[in-house]
Simulated scan of single mutants.
Amino acid sequence: MKYGQFVMQVFLLTIVGGLSLTYSQTLNAPTSLTVEVNDTAEVDCKIQQNDDRAMYTAEDITWYNQNQAIPEEMYSTISNTTSVLVLPFVQFADAGDYSCRLGNGVVSTTQIQVGTVPRIANFSCQARNMKEVWCTWDPMPSNLPTTYVFTYKLSHSKKWGDCPDSVTKGPNSCYIEQSLGTPHNMRVVATNDLGSKVWLFNINPDTQSKPDPPEDVKVIAETSNIAAVSWKIPSEWYSPHFTLHYKLQYYSEWQPHICQRNLMQILSFLIR
C-alpha cells in the first residue's frame, strides 16, 4: 500500500487575562492509498493538537464516500485522537474518495485505488536467423498505471542493457539486431503501486532459430509424369555460413501415400 499525507487545521482563539492563546487541531490522513483487490483497506484519520484542551475528539469524526455518509459500523475509534475506516474485500468499484470530517466541517480526503499486482502473458522470443532476435509480451489489465521495462544481456555478461528497438516489431516488443548467435537472457520487469514482478526468457539464435518457409515455390510439369519443383531461400535468412535443410513432401493420384525427400543445399527437385 502507498500513502501520502494530508493535513487540515482548525484554530480556537481564546482571550485569557488580555492574552491571546491559540489552540489548533489538525486532521492527518493519507492523501492516497493503493489496495489489492479482495484485500482489506484501512484508513486512519488522526487529530493532532498543540494543547490538551481539545475542541473535538475522534468520537466527533464521521466518514464519507463521494460525499455520501458511511455507516458507523464501518469505522471505529481506537483512541481519543484516531478513527479508523475499514473496508473488507475491496473490489474495483470501491475505488474513490473517502473523507473524514470533524463536527465543524474540517475535512481530510483519501483517494483509494484498487488494482492487482502487475502481470504479463505470452512472453516469448524468437529468431529467424543467427543475426537478429526479438521478444514480445502481452500486458494484463491491473486497473493501475503500470510500466514495463525490457532489458537483455548475453549469457556470459553481468550487465543488463536497455532495449535498442521497441518500434520495429510493434508495441510491447524488443528487436535486437546483430545478436551474433550468442545465448541471450531476456527480462521484462512490470511495476505498479502494488509492486514489481520479473519474467525471464532465454534464447540462443545459433540453436533455436526457426527460419521462415521457402519463398516463391513453383511446380512446373516437365512431362506427363515429371514435375519440377523449385523455391528460394527465405529472405530473412542472411546467414551465408549456415545452410538450410529442406523437406519435400508430395503424393500423386497413382501413389496416394506421402513421399518425402530430405534435401541439403538444393533449391529444386524433379518428381518422377
Rank of each mutant, 00 (worst) to 15 (best):
I226W: 01
I176S: 13
K131T: 11
D60L: 06
Y98A: 01
W137L: 14
N65M: 08
A127Y: 00
H156K: 13
N67R: 09
S32H: 12
G105D: 09
N129T: 04
S99W: 02
W137S: 07
R128K: 15
I47K: 03
E73N: 15
Q25D: 04
S179F: 00
M74F: 13
N104H: 03
V7K: 05
C174E: 13
N28P: 05
V198G: 00
T81W: 05
F150K: 08
Y152I: 03
E253T: 15
P213S: 09
A29D: 01
H241G: 11
Q208C: 01
I112Q: 00
E73S: 13
Q48V: 14
P205S: 03
F92L: 14
C259A: 08
V106Q: 04
G195K: 05
D206K: 15
K232D: 12
L21N: 11
T116S: 11
V217N: 09
Q178F: 08
T26V: 04
G17R: 02
Y64M: 07
F242L: 11
I203C: 01
F89A: 14
V189G: 02
A41T: 10
P171M: 13
P234W: 04
D216F: 06
V114K: 04
Y64C: 03
V133W: 00
N65I: 00
N204Y: 09
P234N: 05
A228G: 06
W237K: 02
I70H: 08
L194W: 02
N225E: 12
L144E: 06
S99A: 14
V133H: 02
L194H: 05
Y250S: 08
W160I: 02
G195R: 09
T182N: 10
Q255F: 11
F89Q: 15
Q66E: 15
E236P: 00
V117I: 15
N50H: 06
D206G: 09
D193E: 15
S20T: 12
D94E: 07
Q49F: 08
M140R: 04
P205T: 13
Q25V: 07
S235D: 10
T223W: 00
V43E: 01
S76C: 05
G96Q: 06
Q5C: 05
N122K: 14
G103D: 03
N192K: 07
I15T: 11
C259L: 13
Y3T: 05
K169V: 11
A190T: 10
W160N: 04
D206P: 04
D44E: 08
D165K: 13
R53E: 10
D39Y: 01
K158Y: 09
A190R: 05
F123T: 03
Y246N: 05
L200Q: 01
P71V: 03
N104C: 04
K2Y: 08
V189L: 06
N122S: 14
L200I: 01
D216P: 01
V84N: 06
L248E: 04
Q113E: 14
A121N: 12
M74L: 14
Y148F: 15
